[in-house]
Design a protein around this nucleic acid. Structure first.
Lengths: 148, 148
DNA sequence: TAGTAAATCGTAACTATTACGTTTTATTAA
DNA sequence: TTAATAAAACGTAATAGTTACGATTTACTA
């Protein structure tokens, strides 16, 4: 998912293209990792000091609904990243910085037939850990690339 | 995990056996499904009107630490169930009532070797859906078995 | 360029969870 | 059996993440 696709998705569904949304999408594009609402707000307030959580959360859920972002949760906090354009995939996730590695395996392939007394609506497979940078306690690598 | 095991685990680690803990463990034992802190509090306040969230949460985290309970999260809420004594397992979970089915497959077996630039610390594989009872919108089945 | 529907602001409310000083209670040992 | 004490629970407040809402601003359209 790149900005052009996101833009046309917004337009197609009758949503407006604002400078806040542009900055937010740019951030996700640039980082390509899972971010928390707080991280997003902090980053965006550098450019838009008055930006509120309402705007961040509203857009996060809109973008997720449109398939621009994909979300998950760990350590009791919801996180989002730009949607990978792959058909169906899972992630290996660094729980420290949110960076991901694509997994090319889906455990659902090993589930033989749906049990007749249970209607499957979804599944989750994620591997958690520490990427090389975070494992080395290199705190500097956790900041936004734009701040380097 | 049954009550006797839980009891000896508490004793062995120097924790007290109180009537609140007994009721709480009984509830998990009897239900055998994922419960939220709120559900637990509601149930227990029938017997102990003054029971506080502090007690519920404190014991939940203690029981999880001791391996008496196992926890997960969905719909933005943390949930716990009595620990299955199986070695390593995953669950198919009814997101409506919290009932589970044991899965005898672990996707980690399909991961060939650990990538050298990522230290794996954990993983999560859960299948979500609706059990037969909840799928039939039979709301009555969602109450505690003790209240039937 | 005016109208309007959506987005944002500023802030409050809500929910889940954690924290803490005080009181009560289970356990241990005299 | 009782006294000592360490843990548990109570009552309540604080915190964190998220959602909600009326008023204002802004992007889009006709």
């Amino acid at each position: 998912m790149d900005l052009k696709q996101a833009l046309s998705l917004l337009k197609k569904n009758g949503y407006k293209y604002t400078d806040k949304r542009e900055l937010m999408l740019n951030l996700f594009q640039k980082e390509g990792r899972y971010l928390t609402a707080k991280e997003i707000l902090d980053y965006m307030q550098a450019k838009f000091p008055g930006l509120s959580f309402d705007t961040v959360y509203r857009n996060l859920s809109l973008f997720e609904r449109l398939g621009i972002l994909e979300g998950t949760e760990w350590d009791g906090e919801r996180r989002y990243r730009i949607h990978c354009n792959k058909d169906h995939h899972h992630h290996m996730i660094c729980t420290d910085c949110g960076k991901t590695k694509l997994l090319h395996i889906c455990p659902m392939n090993g589930i033989l037939g749906e049990p007749d007394d249970f209607e499957i609506t979804g599944h989750k497979f994620e591997i958690y850990g520490l990427c090389a940078e975070c494992n080395g306690n290199n705190k500097a690598t956790k900041s936004f690339t734009s701040n380097r």
